[in-house]
Design a protein around this nucleic acid. Structure first.
Lengths: 338, 338
DNA sequence: GTGAAAGCGCTAACAT
DNA sequence: ATGTTAGCGCTTTCAC
């Protein structure tokens, strides 16, 4: 039943050489004869040798596992990021270990607490909304486990970060609304304290300022990131003494939630109230009217983060890089006045 | 910098007992004094001990890793299944290792080829469309790595399987169309050779047969699972000499693709052509008209598969179970005649 | 360029 | 109930 997995010892025996040589040949270490190396490689293939990562890990104190810590997986943006990560991790022979926080800071801390060198070689992390403290991150980094943040980053931790250009994306969105004649532009966003939402807010504010548009407190609503939150936020906006004539939503799900409110109230989207989202979730092309949005390079974010993490893992003292990927405004029907 | 991770040896030294006792206490083995056990547990907590899974794995030939092999992750159904799996895996202290096949049988084989006991303790697998042979599955199982299939299963492999009730779901969908007065019902489905598509086909055929409706070859189209395939299939259906007045799509993405074709051609969905999908992707509630569909218990499928896999891993000779979870028809606008 | 041997942290006989 | 010890498969000094 248990056909005894082949080990380097078996290869050594077959070839009448030492395990040390086999080990060196397999890893392409310089001080090994090219002939011997070929012999070993061929034999390994022939015998269907598979490295035992537990043994390797035990001695090198590594695991070939990288962890992904993120708020959710049933989500277009996040699942796309995952697929990007998976692509480069697989190419590099790394396994992905998935941790889902459900946006709970406590869960995030619990997860990080269980992580130790030897079990996880590095972490790709998108911070949970509620996160306020940083020490659980620095503790991980001090253990020698590199972290690369993506999307939602912890701003005062010195490590690599990969983000989309939230500021310019938001600016483009609001600028587009203004150019299309909307004058009273609201912003529905997530909970406060997240860098990417703040950047989008700044883009929104700058666009207003540059065109000398008023900033109304009433027109800026903080709540959750879900579709239902978008629905609720829109309800609230409709109750303002002075109603906005356009809404910039922090993401497509909220934009769609807002559209649902408007549709139910028979308010014409585009004509009466313009809407723009953020992400370019496939849903934004399916809903009608189709949703103008800012496309995020989600897959590329996944790829780049993972590549950066690989560098951190390979070169122990790789200098932290901050990558900001461009976004792109996708104009659709929800911002057409007629 | 490297503060030397604490090991059971350290705990043993502190407590003046042997490593064996510490090891036993930590794992709650029966033959250990309750007092000693508490002492060890407290000390472990105090010293912030974390088990070295490489060491454990090396001696037990295990890894605490379970693999998920599936066609895609950017997909509502699959990402929901993953979240279900993640939930129970996390609870059991297991890591998830993600492998994405992109529906390529070759990729699937490559992935399985790299898997060996000690690195992966068990596999959750949704077979790729193109899969035709089974030996790469049996090879894994013979190595002592249990597999639990979900959704798309390899029918002649004797191991646990978790599926939704494809047959009855499909039957309910078509029966609903018939009861709403549609008479010429087409079926657009995936590539041939997948059990779940066959079951949906059988449900479709039985519903037709029971009502003495004709089965027209022309009205049954096999292609891919994507939205674009749905669009193309619908185009083809519209070219039939005798056009169908309703379409049962194998999944929501294809149903939506079909709807897009109809909308472009200004054919009234529901009134002229009824559409029903399968999955209950959130998109089906967003598109207009909203899409009637058969809800799949995706998260539960993930949970149950993972629970079953845990049983296979824990009890070496757990008898294979086949779980079929109920589906539910969700009636919306796309099948209303007026 | 290659081999011998120690040892990574833990579990599992085998003793006691 | 607890201790002793071998050894899991590999890498890595240290010899030669």
């Amino acid at each position: 039943m248990k056909p005894h997995a082949v080990t380097i010892k078996d290869i050594a025996k077959e070839l009448n050489i030492s395990v040390a040589t086999v080990s060196r040949a397999l890893r392409d270490t310089y001080d090994v004869n090219q002939e011997t190396r070929q012999l070993v490689l061929n034999k390994a293939l022939e015998m269907n040798y598979k490295p035992n990562y537990n043994a390797i890990g035990l001695v090198t104190n590594s695991s070939h596992n990288i962890g992904i810590v993120l708020p959710a997986v049933v989500n277009y943006y996040f699942s796309t990021v995952i697929s990007g990560i998976q692509e480069v991790a697989y190419k590099n022979g790394y396994n992905i270990v998935l941790y889902v926080t459900n946006d709970s800071a406590e869960r995030e801390r619990d997860i990080l607490h269980d992580i130790s060198p030897g079990n996880i070689d590095g972490l790709l992390l998108c911070v949970s909304s509620e996160s306020d403290q940083d020490e659980h991150f620095t503790k991980i980094i001090n253990m020698g486990i590199p972290i690369v943040f993506f999307d939602r980053v912890a701003s005062n931790i010195d490590t690599s970060k990969v983000m989309q250009d939230d500021f310019n994306g938001a600016y483009a969105a609001v600028d587009h609304l203004i150019k299309n004649g909307y004058k009273k532009i609201a912003h529905i966003t997530g909970p406060p304290g997240l860098l990417f939402t703040e950047r989008r807010m700044e883009g929104y504010l700058l666009a207003l300022k540059e065109h000398n548009f008023p900033v109304k407190k009433e027109w800026i609503i903080h709540s959750g990131f879900t579709q239902n939150c978008g629905t609720a936020d829109m309800m609230q906006l409709l109750k303002c003494k002075e109603k906005p004539d356009a809404v910039f939503a922090v993401n497509d799900r909220k934009a769609i939630g807002a559209m649902l409110t408007l549709k139910k109230k028979n308010i014409k989207i585009g004509k009466q109230i313009g809407i723009v989202g953020f992400t370019n979730d496939p849903m934004s092309e399916i809903i009608s009217p189709t949703l103008t949005t800012v496309e995020e390079p989600a897959k590329e974010i996944g790829r780049r983060s993972c590549e950066l993490l690989m560098k951190h893992i390979f070169k122990k003292y790789f200098i932290a890089e901050e990558v900001i990927l461009p976004t792109k405004l996708i104009v659709r029907e929800s911002t057409q006045r007629l």
